[in-house]
C-alpha cells in the first residue's frame, strides 16, 4: 500500500480566493450601508415605557424627613428628596409627592437642631436614674429645614416642610430657583475663602 502525496493546485486556489474577494467587499459595504443609519438612529431601548427619556435627578438627598404637607405621604415620613426634570420629588417606599418648580410661590431654608435620640428610645432614656436622660438630651445635631409654599392645579395654597442634613437645603433652593421657583429671601452667597 503506497501513500501518495496529494497534489494541490495552489494557483487554482489562489485564483478562486482572489475572485471571491470583491464579492465579500461588496457584501460588507452593502451591510454597512444598511446598518449605519440604524446604528445612529435614536431608537428607544427595549423596556423603556415613555417615548421621552426621563431626566436624571440633578440634586438627590436620601434620609429626608417630610414633617408636614405631603398629601399622599404621611407626616414625618422619611424618604428621598430629588429634583427631577423641572419638579421637586419626595419619594418613600409607598408613595410619591411631586411639586412643579413653577408652582412654588416661596422657598426658604432655615437651620434648626434635632435630638440624636428620638422615638421610643427617647422615652426609655427618661427612666435612666440620676438625670442620665437629661444628659443624653444634650446630644443633638444641626439640620436644615426646607419650607415650600406652592399652589395646586385648582389654585389651593399648600405648605410643605422637609428636614435635611445640615448644609443640604441650599442646593435644592438654588436648583429650584434656577428652574422658576420664587424665593422671597434670596439664597445667601457663601463667604469668600481667604487663601
Amino acid at each position: 500500500m503506497s501513500i501518495q502525496n496529494p497534489r494541490v493546485n495552489v494557483s487554482v486556489a489562489m485564483n478562486s480566493f482572489r475572485s471571491a474577494r470583491p464579492r465579500i467587499w461588496a457584501r460588507a459595504l452593502f451591510l454597512l450601508a444598511i446598518g449605519a443609519p440604524l446604528m445612529f438612529s435614536p431608537t428607544p431601548a427595549r423596556g423603556q415605557a415613555s417615548p421621552t427619556p426621563q431626566a436624571a435627578p440633578s440634586v438627590v438627598q436620601t434620609d429626608v424627613k417630610l414633617v408636614i404637607g405631603g398629601e399622599k405621604v404621611k407626616n414625618n415620613s422619611v424618604g428621598t428628596l430629588s429634583v427631577v426634570g423641572s419638579s421637586l420629588q419626595f419619594a418613600t417606599g409607598k408613595a410619591k409627592v411631586e411639586v412643579e418648580a413653577s408652582a412654588i410661590q416661596d422657598i426658604s431654608t432655615n437651620e434648626d437642631s434635632r435630638q440624636d435620640i428620638t422615638g421610643a428610645a427617647h422615652f426609655a432614656t427618661m427612666a435612666i436614674p440620676y438625670g442620665g436622660g437629661r444628659a443624653l438630651a444634650l446630644f443633638s445635631h444641626q439640620v436644615d429645614v426646607l419650607t415650600l409654599q406652592f399652589k395646586d392645579a385648582n389654585g389651593g395654597f399648600h405648605g410643605a416642610i422637609f428636614v435635611l442634613p445640615q448644609g443640604q437645603g441650599a442646593p435644592f433652593k438654588k436648583q429650584l430657583v434656577a428652574m422658576g421657583a420664587k424665593a422671597s429671601v434670596p439664597l445667601a452667597e457663601p463667604p469668600p475663602t481667604d487663601k
Partner: peptide, 28 residues
Amino acid sequence: PEFRMAIYENLITQIEKTGKFQHVYRSG
C-alpha cells in the same frame, strides 16, 4: 416660615377632623 406653614397645614387637618364642615377649602 416653617412655623407659619405648620400652623396652616395643621389647621386644615384638625378642622377636617372635627367633621363640622362638608368642605374645608384651602386658600385660593
